[in-house]
Design a protein around this nucleic acid. Sequence first.
DNA 1: CTGAAAGCGCTTACAG
DNA 2: CTGAAAGCGCTTACAG
Lengths: 337, 337
Amino acid sequence: MSVTIKDVARRAGVSPSTVSRVISKHPRISKETAERVTRVMEELGYHPNSMAKGLVSKATYILGVILPRPAEELFQNYFFHEVLRGILAQANRSGYDLLIASGSSESDELETVKRLVRGRRVDGIILLSSKTKDPLIHFLNEVGFPFVIIGRSPDFPDAPTVDNDNVQAAYDATRHLINQGHERIGFVSGPQELTVSQDRLTGYRQAMLEAGLSISEDWIVEGEFLQETGYRAMSMLMNLPERPTALVVIDDIVAFGVLHGLNELGYSVPQDMCLVGFNNISLSEHTSPPLTSVDIGTYQIGYMTAQTLIKTISKEPLHQTRKIIPHRLIVRGSSVK
Amino acid sequence: MSVTIKDVARRAGVSPSTVSRVISKHPRISKETAERVTRVMEELGYHPNSMAKGLVSKATYILGVILPRPAEELFQNYFFHEVLRGILAQANRSGYDLLIASGSSESDELETVKRLVRGRRVDGIILLSSKTKDPLIHFLNEVGFPFVIIGRSPDFPDAPTVDNDNVQAAYDATRHLINQGHERIGFVSGPQELTVSQDRLTGYRQAMLEAGLSISEDWIVEGEFLQETGYRAMSMLMNLPERPTALVVIDDIVAFGVLHGLNELGYSVPQDMCLVGFNNISLSEHTSPPLTSVDIGTYQIGYMTAQTLIKTISKEPLHQTRKIIPHRLIVRGSSVK
DNA sequence: CTGAAAGCGCTTACAG
DNA sequence: CTGAAAGCGCTTACAG
């Protein structure tokens, strides 16, 4: 069997209590004892049993990450992988492990969260996307369990969140196209219930309005965060009598689909259509032409989210419950003629 | 505080033992008692404390996934995300959660694994990539802890693995190009210590040899699983006096870099160069031209890996310790003129 | 500075 | 079919 604290104690000639104190670096322990115990622990390859430790200290040092529900689909979105990297990096740095979970349906997802929370399987929870009327947020808020949302929650404005200023980001993207002389600009959006879709659409509308440009509702297409969405949108958009000359696209992945769709229809970018995407994923500089994209600091979002959650868990005061990660427009060939 | 088994017991008028038996669906429990206890559990929103349960049953129902070490880089490889989806799906289906961990250096990584194993934090471990002389495998093998490797381990041939027949896969890819009439075929490889690189190179060489075609060592380039690798390789390869007319590329991501590099140098695919990649990631059908790729059943690899690990944990006999997931060449525009 | 004892929330032989 | 008791491997007041 495994080495326990008793084995270490016996071998070091001290009590289990003392070994425990050495592990937790209790101040009132003599240097000699500490050293001897430490040596024995290494000799025996001792590691504290995480469950016994967790049972008494009521902490698991595990952060739970809930993948967005239609996980099978959305997990294809490279945003999540980058965000996960950021979360993992910060979690590890602070001595936390990551547990990832998902649900196959909305109720299944809620069940999973309840199990994680009530079963004390994790110390806190990260929600990777935010939408309106989310029962998970409702539950977490009600039971007062530590959690952080990536995005924002219109229904629970006090919940800790890490987000971009998506209204401004889309405004900037649209403004960039207006500056290039475009007047007919469309918007390819994501699922309507997601706040990120709502906010970017708002920013787009604002920029257009402010520039005195009118929007045809035909220019606004809604879909999933998949290439398919962009691909299909093109056969529709390009058939319009008055089609747009530029598009703001909610996600680089979708923009790849747009690029492919245009290509197949015989149009070229940026001559026939200019494009701006979001997320600036690593592939974006390797398309032809390279894709102009709003870098939203995805890794940093993950990093900051983990940091915020860990602070919440340790009951450190948050300077601000709603953190905003800065964005930056990266101009490449797809948007300048 | 949380609801415990005692609270349920009191409210249901039974002993904690009985509640415990109801939870674990012990056969010798009267129907009435079981129903009453179940009702009370629901009323109280009771969920068993995972740590208390784990402490006594010595099982966590958590699978540990170790991300390849230069995680910051390799985690960009979309292979891992797809594989993770497969692992997650099967794990959830069997009542397991997933813990993901990584290390910043080789020794840090080993420390992490030791902590997970000796601290009983997980019930088994999945290694997402396989290389020669891996200290992790050495450790896991030595302590007899359940683990499964994605790939294969030349040093520990008896270790349970899930892999493709990468020799055959690369053979097929090369053969496809030979069938198109190519005689000068190059190979853009990944890190040399990875078995997947070694195997695919072997398959490529075999196909060439068998077809009586000679290989110039200049045609074999080695790099990381990044677009950069493919991108940079092109400026080199295209400057050769006798340059290849087709390339087998270790990973679609790298092939995207190749595509971009060729584009920028003014060459077009498939006219000037034919390409075959591996992994068939979702983007591959949306490049211009769409990329021919060997579909290696990435999701299925993950799925099967989790299944194998869970069997190992439950001490079910494995029919075969080395599972092979079938591959399939998906021919698209990048390899046929 | 260190030890003995109680307890975290479960499970599981052992009785009955 | 059900309960009392011991124990999983730790931590932490309470003494000394």
